[in-house]
């Protein structure tokens, strides 16, 4: 090969090809994806449809497929993350939880995710459209967390998370997850301001000395709010919850 321009063109073409094919075309396909209602309606008739595409009659009697539209007045999903949970996501990012926890549920029939109760349904692209950084992850040293809010929620879930982050062996004996106790503060019982006190069983090796209690720092609180916010309990036109 003596022809430098040709060599260079080939080199250029190869990467341009995959960039167009992988990055650009997925941008074309998914770049305009919006939150949706649980079911779409036919844009002409207003009738509910199954799936994303609706069949619309044209004047000459033939019919074409068009995309359905959200049902008027119903809630759109997914919803934008808010406030404290959003700050908690920063903590999650900065501590690298993602390197042990994925956030994507594989569909029924591929892997065992649904049977493990990691989600009610498989994840779809639309679930992620409002996330500023998408943390699908590729490792499951720990369980998938895409829908951890489905299994750990409300006050009980909050308590569980705090005990677990303070010392994972409290809730999960033998856990290989590291302790995140630097997200907590040990202080004399009854200090101000009032805060949720982390539940640590008496006699557990990580229990504070008598007269002391463990409370979350602002980062710890935010992180747990984020975990509680990870709920996928809604249907989408292309991904219905099982009956």
């Amino acid at each position: 090969m003596k022809n430098l321009p040709l060599l260079f063109l080939g080199i250029f073409f190869c990467i341009a090809f995959s960039w167009t094919g992988i990055v650009l075309s997925s941008h074309v396909q998914l770049g305009a994806l919006e939150p949706a209602t649980e079911q779409y309606v036919n844009p002409n008739t207003g009738d509910a449809i199954t799936g994303v595409m609706a069949s619309v009659e044209k004047e000459d009697g033939s019919s074409i497929q068009v995309e359905g539209v959200p049902a008027p007045g119903e809630t759109l999903h997914p919803q934008a993350p808010v406030g404290l949970a959003q700050q908690g996501k920063q903590v999650y990012i900065s501590l690298g939880c993602m390197y042990c926890h994925s956030q994507q549920v594989r569909h029924e029939g591929f892997g065992n995710d649904i049977a493990r109760n990691w989600g009610l349904r498989g994840s779809v692209a639309r679930d992620y459209v409002l996330q500023d950084r998408v943390l699908l992850g590729t490792m499951r040293t720990g369980p998938d967390l895409a829908a951890v809010g489905n299994r750990l929620f409300d006050a009980a879930g909050r308590d569980w998370h705090h005990s677990h982050l303070w010392d994972p062996t409290i809730t999960s004996p033998g856990s290989l997850m590291p302790s995140f106790r630097f997200l907590y503060e040990v202080r004399p019982v009854g200090s101000k301001p009032d805060k949720l006190v982390v539940n640590i069983p008496n006699g557990h090796p990580s229990a504070p000395p008598p007269g002391y209690e463990v409370v979350p720092t602002a980062e710890g609180e935010a992180l747990v709010e984020y975990l509680l916010s990870l709920r996928v309990d809604y249907s989408l036109p292309e991904a219905q919850l099982p009956e």
Partner: peptide, 30 residues
Amino acid sequence: FWFPWLYFVSQTMIIFAPARGVIQPITNWW
């Protein structure tokens, strides 16, 4: 030649002007 292209595109589409949803991980693994 390939490395800077890869690096530039991924930094742009994931960090500086994040693309929508799962286009990020797609770009990331590309």
